[in-house]
Amino acid sequence: MLPRRSVRRPVLLAAQCRTQGGLRDNGEISDISAEGCCLRMRGIYFRVGTRIVLRPQGMESMAGVVRWVSRDLAGVEFDRPIYGPIVDHIVSAHAT
C-alpha cells in the first residue's frame, strides 16, 4: 500500500453516491483530504476499482475511484484534487 499524499481529516458530511452502473445511495464522508475521502454507505457495497460520482451535501459532484473497501467503508481517490482552502472550509464546517 502506498502512503497518502496528505493527511485525512475527520468530518461528518452527508453525501450522495452514484456508480457508473446507475446504483445510487446516501451515505456519509467520515474523513477527507485534497486527494480523497473515506465513505460509509448504507445500502450498496463497492469493489476496488469501482468508478463513482460523489456529491457531498451542499457541494458540486466529484468523480473518483474506490481504492480500498472494508465492510461498509470505502476509500475513494478523487480524479482531481480539491483545492486546499476548500478542504479547510469543509473540515471547519463539518468537523466531528
Rank of each mutant, 00 (worst) to 15 (best):
R4G: 09
R5D: 08
R5M: 06
S6A: 13
S6W: 08
S6I: 05
R9K: 14
R9T: 13
P10C: 04
P10I: 02
P10W: 03
L12M: 11
L12W: 12
A15F: 07
A15Y: 07
Q16C: 09
C17I: 15
Q20P: 10
G22F: 00
L23I: 06
R24C: 08
R24D: 03
R24F: 00
D25S: 12
D25W: 03
I29Q: 01
D31M: 01
I32S: 04
I32Q: 01
S33I: 04
A34D: 09
E35V: 04
E35G: 12
E35Y: 12
G36V: 06
G36Q: 07
G36I: 04
C38Y: 11
C38L: 14
R40S: 11
R40V: 15
R42Q: 11
G43W: 14
I44N: 08
Y45S: 11
F46V: 04
F46I: 02
R47T: 15
R47H: 15
G49V: 10
T50L: 07
R51V: 13
V53E: 12
L54M: 11
R55S: 10
R55C: 10
Q57K: 09
G58Q: 00
E60L: 12
E60F: 13
E60C: 10
M62C: 11
M62Y: 01
A63Y: 03
V66H: 02
V66W: 04
V66G: 01
R67Q: 12
W68T: 00
V69Y: 10
S70N: 11
D72H: 12
D72L: 01
L73D: 06
L73R: 14
A74F: 05
A74K: 06
G75M: 06
V76M: 03
V76Y: 00
E77G: 06
E77K: 15
E77Q: 15
D79R: 01
R80H: 09
Y83H: 15
Y83G: 02
G84A: 12
G84K: 10
P85T: 05
P85L: 02
I86H: 15
D88S: 15
H89N: 13
V91M: 02
S92P: 09
S92K: 09
A93L: 08
A93C: 07
A95I: 07
T96Q: 12
